[in-house]
Design a protein around this nucleic acid. Structure first.
Lengths: 346, 346
DNA sequence: TCGACTGGTGCGCTCCGGGGC
DNA sequence: TGCCCCGGAGCGCACCAGTCG
């Protein structure tokens, strides 16, 4: 058998095993393991040594079961979204120093948001951080009734109790993109939108507003898209057949923009000479030098930091029965990152 | 407060709450919730209704604490590795139908493998599935002494007890790549290696063997690389200054190859006209039409399926004290995927 | 009085032994 | 003899109320 250490049978060592070996009570071992006060330095060392000897590890589940707080933040994210994995990295960085743990639950092919959230809840996460959730607002409101929920990168009515929103000013981002393109001399600027994806409505609106403001109302052209490369590719195929063809395209996000680049490349439409392309997110993807996408950057570390901060604030507020911390919504400014997929029209 | 349902105070409903409401014992509710036999259809419905009424959800942690089995598979993966996220998708698909849960733990900036594994162990995972682990073999052996460990995509001595290996025949993959390039007419083929990364040694060896077999021993050129885009970029910069410049490059993996493509692009070295590039993995990245990388494909669904299968086999074997299931190593054949980054030299 | 330590209880659940029709 | 159902013990731990110098 693969029992390596300490306890006779294959069992995993427990507090009691350590206690027996150190010749103290389980309560004392608990004190030592939690680094609580109430043990002398000498005993502390003796207990620690005994724990090391038999390879003891506290059982996180039992620990959480007993202590009312779990200090666990459940995170739902899209496995294949570079923007999400970038965010997750930031969430870890923000949560662990604050003494909170992150429980990940991925949304992937064959594993929807419903299932992702359920496993998080079953694991007794104290709060949920949802990255770009697509569930109906009603469902999120229902969730928020059970546990504090932070929605990242999706706008929602801030009035929903228990629900915090951390997001980028998507409309402003779209406006920045349009401004940049207009400044380069473009007038015929199309937008490939994200449909019902989080942020899509605001980006669409920002695009419209900016176009109007530049007196380009008659050039407004919104092509149905989505958040994957495939969606971008479909839209690009439609666009490339259009006459007149736009001289610039603002895609819903970086993945979508990548799909657009692909199709143009294959059609012999040069970027940025024949057409300029702008993405959204500034995820790892956009930074790949081979793609080198001009894009609207979201401040990912900041979003992550705020998301964790809001979740924790919520929890500590619940603890003190103090509801005044309700902020509801944090909106972060985006910033345009100019790379090589935009240029003046010719 | 945000208590939405059922139980008076903010508490999360428990078995006892459901039992009280349905007028039965907690034991019976447990039976119903587990879908075990021992309850009449009528009571079952009544209990279920009560559970729905108060919004009851079983506490996974308490459940696992009590039942000796946790049916939890801990997965360590690299957040930013497309190959890993692809694998994770496959792991979910393989585990859930088999009645096992997946607990994810990411390796990211500021969060090393050690930490990733520790949280998995603390959560009482029954087995560990490590994607491309970089830890020393001794450390993995130690881990395998505590719990069944499956190493995916990293070769290890199969004789380590408790350790299963599921991997691609990396040497064969490298050979396929070289064969392809030679067939196209290349002779001066360089290899950007992965250093100490999982699989790197085998790919390097496969490359060497293939070159020798084709009588190209004097053209063997191994450039230090790594598994990120940055590593690839560094190597490409070195290569592009070399005289004579190779006419083809086999990169350690897709990410590395992407970095190579970037640098060549910026240097005005045309791919595949001036130089051919081959990646490894066939992750999402390689399939992006804009990258459209010729690459050595790993059979990701198969690897995932096998990893889960081996872990489970291990567990069920431990259960019956039957050690004959020890297989140790499963090696899967790779297959070349030809896309647009390879062509005859000119 | 205070620091060092312990016994006992219960977190939410599973499961065994047993009882009633 | 079934099938339904219940009481109660205990998983590994945290934490309270104590006891002892």
């Amino acid at each position: 058998m693969s029992a390596s250490s300490g306890v006779p049978d294959g069992r995993r060592p427990t507090l009691a095993d350590v206690a027996a070996r150190a010749g103290v009570s389980t309560a004392l071992v608990s004190i030592v393991m939690r680094e609580a006060k109430g043990a002398s330095a000498a005993t502390r060392e003796r207990v620690l040594q005994a724990a090391r000897d038999i390879g003891y590890r506290p059982d996180a589940r039992a620990r959480l079961l007993r202590s009312q707080r779990s200090r666990l933040l459940g995170v739902q994210f899209g496995l294949q979204h570079p923007f999400h994995t970038d965010l997750v990295e930031g969430l870890y960085a923000a949560a662990e120093p604050a003494g909170y743990q992150i429980a990940l639950s991925a949304v992937a092919a064959g594993r929807g948001e419903q299932r992702a959230v359920e496993t998080l809840l079953d694991d007794r996460c104290e709060a949920l951080i949802l990255l770009g959730p697509q569930a109906p607002a009603a469902r999120l409101a229902e969730l928020a009734g059970q546990v504090p929920v932070v929605s990242v990168a999706r706008r929602l009515r801030p009035s929903i109790p228990g629900l915090e929103v951390v997001r980028t000013a998507d409309d402003k981002g779209a406006r920045q993109a349009v401004d940049h393109l207009v400044e380069l001399g473009h007038r015929d600027i199309a937008h490939i939108d994200g449909g019902r994806a989080p942020g899509a409505a605001d980006r669409r609106r920002g695009y419209r507003t900016a176009m109007n403001r530049h007196g380009l109302a008659e050039h407004i052209r919104i092509v149905p898209g989505g958040l994957t490369e495939e969606d971008g590719a479909d839209a690009a195929r439609a666009l490339s057949a259009d006459r007149p063809r736009p001289t610039a395209v603002l895609a819903f996000n970086d993945r979508c923009a990548t799909g657009v680049l692909d199709v143009f490349l294959r059609c012999g439409i040069a970027v940025p000479d024949d057409i300029s392309v702008v993405g959204f997110d500034d995820s790892h993807l956009a930074r790949l030098a081979h793609i080198d996408l001009t894009t609207v950057g979201q401040d990912i570390p900041r979003l992550a930091q705020l998301a964790v901060g809001r979740a924790i604030a919520r929890l500590e507020a619940d603890e003190t029965a103090d509801e005044t911390v309700a902020v509801g919504e944090q909106v972060i400014a985006p910033h345009l990152v100019v790379r090589s997929t935009t240029a003046p029209p010719r």
